[in-house]
Simulated scan of single mutants.
Amino acid sequence: MLVQSTPLNQAAVIEMEPIKDSRGFFARGFCKKTLAEHGVFFDVVQTNVAFNHQAGTLRGMHFQVPPFCEEKIVSCYQGAIYDVIIDLNRDSGTFGKWFGLTLSAENRLALYVPKGFAHGYQTLTENTSIHYMVSEYYTPSHESGVRWNDPAFEIEWPHVGDLIISQKDKQWKDFDLSTDGVILSEGEGHGS
């Protein structure tokens, strides 16, 4: 598997390297050793699957606050999504910046989301299946988010018609770049 950097501090794109034959292919989707060689020290404690019936479903932008910040590796195994992350780490050189890319069953890419990043996606096709590996257990008391269309970030989402968004995701408060953000304590950052 290949690990490539993104414009955002510590985030990475993971690409499978399929070994093909007449039956199909075999590829590593996760390798702790390869990730560590690229400075990503990721311990999986939980995996989750999300299925979406309709194109235009938007989920996000979610994160957990300290001490339950989580890293994620997100893949799309059926259909296609536009996956977006925002660096909310106040001490980061890319604080307040976003990055997005298409993850699909065809391109077999995955996105590594560091601690202190908000994450969300918009489905580009019907019947999408997304797989998450996470480094922290879901902790509802420490769940937070920013709105998908918050003017602080100006995310450029693809246009696919009417969006389907939960009430919870519509109601996140405006983010203030001068005062808001995640402060990771010692040992909570990348590579912990």
Rank of each mutant, 00 (worst) to 15 (best):
22 S>F: 11
22 S>A: 14
23 R>Y: 07
24 G>W: 04
24 G>C: 11
25 F>M: 09
26 F>S: 14
26 F>T: 15
26 F>M: 15
26 F>N: 12
27 A>E: 14
27 A>L: 07
27 A>T: 05
27 A>V: 05
27 A>S: 15
28 R>T: 11
31 C>W: 13
32 K>S: 15
32 K>D: 15
33 K>I: 12
33 K>D: 15
34 T>F: 10
34 T>Y: 10
34 T>N: 12
34 T>V: 15
36 A>H: 10
36 A>C: 07
37 E>N: 09
38 H>M: 05
38 H>E: 12
39 G>R: 08
39 G>P: 08
39 G>A: 06
39 G>H: 09
40 V>N: 07
40 V>L: 15
40 V>K: 10
40 V>D: 06
41 F>D: 13
41 F>S: 11
41 F>H: 10
42 F>I: 11
42 F>A: 03
42 F>Q: 08
43 D>C: 11
43 D>A: 12
43 D>Q: 13
43 D>L: 12
43 D>N: 13
43 D>S: 14
43 D>E: 15
44 V>H: 04
44 V>G: 08
44 V>A: 14
44 V>Y: 01
45 V>E: 03
45 V>P: 03
45 V>L: 03
45 V>G: 06
45 V>K: 02
46 Q>D: 13
47 T>E: 12
47 T>G: 10
47 T>H: 14
47 T>M: 13
47 T>Y: 12
48 N>K: 02
48 N>M: 09
48 N>I: 08
48 N>R: 02
48 N>Y: 03
50 A>I: 02
50 A>N: 12
50 A>M: 06
50 A>G: 12
51 F>K: 10
51 F>Y: 12
51 F>E: 14
51 F>A: 11
52 N>D: 00
52 N>H: 10
52 N>V: 01
52 N>C: 08
53 H>P: 01
53 H>M: 02
53 H>E: 07
53 H>D: 03
53 H>C: 01
53 H>W: 01
54 Q>R: 09
54 Q>S: 09
55 A>T: 05
55 A>S: 13
55 A>P: 05
56 G>I: 01
56 G>E: 01
56 G>H: 00
56 G>D: 01
58 L>I: 13
58 L>R: 10
59 R>W: 00
60 G>S: 05
60 G>Y: 02
60 G>F: 03
60 G>I: 01
61 M>W: 08
62 H>S: 09
63 F>E: 01
63 F>L: 15
63 F>N: 00
64 Q>N: 11
64 Q>H: 08
64 Q>T: 02
65 V>W: 02
65 V>S: 13
